[in-house]
Design a protein around this nucleic acid. Structure first.
Lengths: 153, 153
DNA sequence: GTAGGTGCAAAGCGTTTGCAACAGA
DNA sequence: TCTGTTGCAAACGCTTTGCACCTAC
């Protein structure tokens, strides 16, 4: 999906909800969709501060408020790394995926398996449960850290 | 597994680590293994305060410290509900399982599917990732809340 | 003009920690 | 005795909120 398309959707979304397109929201939006990384609220705040091309800094509060706004609007998704950190990623033009988090270096690897998704729904149905979302996070060692661990032993 | 057996293991575990069997630890242990529910640190603290059969109350700090101790010892497991709450459950004599959390009433339903576990490992192997743990949490509506939602609509 | 948005600083929440008193071993 | 453990209260990290000022519409 093209950047311009996503941006238009964002603007439409705001308009639909009777919300305003402010400078700050634009900055946050641009910053998020300029990366393909996972990021925390604090990280994003740092990016916005550092890439101060406009000189204006978006406050922490607004960063949180805008992240919330974008998540509710379905532009980004969040999940807990399990290490007390909530990380976000943009979701437009992405397929749904799950995560493997390296306990050593924090690296996040994405993966996706349609068969797992199907089995989740199967299990949910068995319990009369209606699935609205899910989190599947494997934690352990990434390839790189495994190699290093082997060398050290 | 019998309660007495688990307790003996706990005592052995403490001994092995050169740690002491204190009154407080016993109380926390008993309280946890007297239930089959999932609980948060705060909930557990409440239980300990309310079941004040001994009159003595275990402090919040000690509750947290003991939970940590038990988790590291493999007696309990924790996971995030995704609603900013970390919940624990005891794990002795239990099989591993995953969770469905109702967004409406907070009810937690357990489930287990060996096929999903296998697929997780398969995907990890594909990325050279060594799995040490995983979290699979479905969120949505439980059977009860679905029914209520239907009625209200 | 006006409802909605912002920044600030303070509060909130769940959790952790420093320290002096305490208690198993 | 002597080291590990406890309770307290303060600190913590991340997030949310109240409020006065600001700004897109």
């Amino acid at each position: 999906m093209k950047h311009a398309t996503i941006k238009r959707r964002f603007e439409e979304h705001l308009a639909q909800e009777g919300q305003r397109l402010t400078n700050q929201r634009t900055q946050v939006f641009e910053c998020i969709f300029a990366t393909h990384d996972h990021f925390s609220a604090e990280t994003l705040f740092g990016w916005l501060r550092d890439t101060g091309d406009s000189g204006q800094v978006v406050s922490r509060a607004t960063v949180y408020r805008t992240l919330d706004l974008l998540e509710r609007g379905g532009f980004i998704e969040s999940f807990n790394t399990g290490m007390g950190e909530k990380v976000y990623e943009h979701v437009m033009g992405h397929h749904h995926h799950d995560h493997m988090v390296c306990e050593e270096c924090g690296q996040i690897q994405e993966f996706h398996d349609e068969r797992i998704e199907a089995l989740q729904l199967e299990n949910a149905a068995k319990h009369g449960f209606e699935v609205r979302g899910h989190v599947l996070r494997l934690s352990g060692l990434c390839r790189k850290c495994r190699r290093q661990a082997t060398v050290q032993d």
